[in-house]
């Protein structure tokens, strides 16, 4: 993987980035108060945004292009839904269960896939995700084509009723914020530096004494867990979990989100996810034309806006965003 086509920056934290992120969170916190936008839509977008940021941790920072990330997103959703519906546990337990399980899944899949580089890594993750898709298609607990539906969101810590729109909204926003802060912490840590080094020149990182496979594997596991949490959050919000979230097209969707916003940028995946969610929301009347639009967006991003919306902006401002 050559680094030349990625964004070339050195400084890690920028004031502008922090201001923009703080502004975003404040704006999001005001959504239910102002009532301009449908909170349900924002909640879905936030789940996609965490998913995209988790994916970006892998592709943008470690340079690993997974084509099977839907397996973590979908698994998180299924497990959270199953725990809520069949075991009737409170939502915080259901989410934790989904998080731990997808971390474990990430550990196993990572051990298999990380042995291969570049294209092979992409194809291996894609194939393993498809295997899991067939497993879910056939196992009874997922209810096949129908998916898991009609479960209550429950009471958070036994106190807060999440059926109230404000309660679930701020809970999701809080989880999103925690996830993003964790990702920011990972990127700016020494571990994040090593990932950058691996992405830019793996051989050189190896010759400096880093066991690159281990670093990549850990990045994969972290990304998997966060993607699983995002999937679980989506299940909690929509009160459904189904096959479409484990299908390979979801793996493609998350690549598109990151590509639209800008690979390797911090705010890019978030913006990309909002664009994507808006597209799903407003273009759904067009039926199959959505797929055509997605394909066209892919081509547009790859051929012209290779750095994505935020990436292009960052290049203009010469700031890390």
């Amino acid at each position: 993987m050559r680094a030349g086509s990625f964004l070339p920056w050195i400084e890690k934290e920028s004031r502008l980035q922090q201001i923009l992120f703080a502004g975003l969170i404040i704006g999001l916190a005001l959504v239910p108060v102002l009532g301009w936008i449908y909170p349900y839509f924002i909640m879905q977008a936030l789940c996609f945004a965490l998913f995209a940021s988790a994916f970006n941790l892998l592709i943008g920072h470690a340079g690993l292009a997974s084509f099977g990330h839907a397996m973590f997103f979908g698994t998180g959703g299924y497990l959270c839904a199953h725990a809520l519906k069949v075991w009737a546990v409170p939502p915080e337990l259901a989410l934790s269960f989904a998080l731990i399980a997808t971390l474990l899944l990430g550990i196993i899949v990572g051990m298999i896939a990380i042995r291969r580089q570049g294209i092979y890594f992409s194809m291996t993750t894609l194939a393993l995700a498809q295997m899991l898709y067939f497993v879910y298609l056939q196992s009874p607990f997922t209810h096949g084509e129908d998916g898991i539906q009609g479960f209550p969101r429950g009471h958070l810590l036994g106190l807060i009723d999440l059926t109230q729109i404000n309660a679930i909204y701020y809970f999701i926003l809080l989880l999103f914020l925690l996830g993003q802060m964790l990702i920011a912490r990972i990127i700016t840590s020494p571990f994040g530096d090593v990932l950058q080094a691996i992405r830019q020149n793996e051989t050189r990182a190896q010759s400096l004494g880093y066991e690159t496979v281990r670093y990549k594997w850990l990045a994969f596991v972290l990304s998997a867990g966060l993607a699983g949490l995002a999937g679980a959050m989506k299940a909690l919000v929509t009160q459904t979990a189904g096959l479409s979230d484990v299908h390979w097209s979801m793996s493609g969707d998350v690549i598109l989100m990151v590509l639209i916003g800008g690979m390797g940028t911090y705010l890019g995946p978030i913006l990309g996810a909002f664009v994507f969610a808006a597209m799903l929301q407003y273009l759904s009347v067009l039926g199959q034309w959505v797929i055509v639009t997605q394909g066209a967006l892919f081509l547009l991003c790859v051929l012209i806006f290779r750095h994505g919306l935020i990436g292009e902006l960052a290049l203009r401002l010469k700031r890390n965003l």
Partner: peptide, 18 residues
């Protein structure tokens, strides 16, 4: 980066499929 070529074929595939 070869990733971009791969993504271009993916985008093309989506368009034709749709």
């Amino acid at each position: 980066d070869h990733l971009y070529g791969l993504l271009a074929t993916f985008g093309f595939a989506l368009i034709v499929q749709g």
